[in-house]
């Protein structure tokens, strides 16, 4: 089963029970909220068990965006889906650590392939 929708320019795709969101460009706070809505709807609609959020095109993740990532992971969990954030750039990782934001509740993987394998293996 496959489906598409877009959210503030960020495409959301569901492939074999896994919702994949590629966050594109710099999002303003409102687009982040819209994206969050769409994501939750998509999980509920498709009954997906995994969510992959690709942030490789993001040059900036501030505390607001970081908090949103955490919130998305938590919401997905309530809907019985596991969230993995992938593709964080080295500079972004260093910045978040310096900010004191280590996103403890969020799972991470190097890329979407790895995340998909983790979700499939249920590890």
């Amino acid at each position: 089963m496959e489906s598409h929708s877009t959210s503030g320019g960020s495409p959301i795709v569901t492939i074999t029970g896994c919702v994949i969101v590629a966050i594109r460009d710099d999002l303003d706070d409102r687009s982040v909220m819209v994206l969050q809505d769409h994501l939750v709807d998509e999980i509920a609609r498709t009954g997906a068990t995994g969510v992959i959020i690709d942030i490789s095109s993001l040059e900036i993740v501030d505390t607001f965006a970081g908090r949103m990532l955490g919130a998305m992971a938590e919401m997905s969990k309530m809907l019985n889906a596991r969230t993995i954030v992938v593709g964080m750039r080295p500079a972004v990782a260093m910045t978040l650590v310096e900010l004191g934001m280590t996103l403890q509740g969020v799972e991470t993987a190097l890329n979407a392939d790895r995340a998909m394998a983790l979700i499939k293996a249920g590890r």
Binding site: E59, P90, T95
Partner: peptide, 9 residues
Amino acid sequence: AVKRTKFVT
């Protein structure tokens, strides 16, 4: 890249 990202953040 690191300085850029830190400052913009």
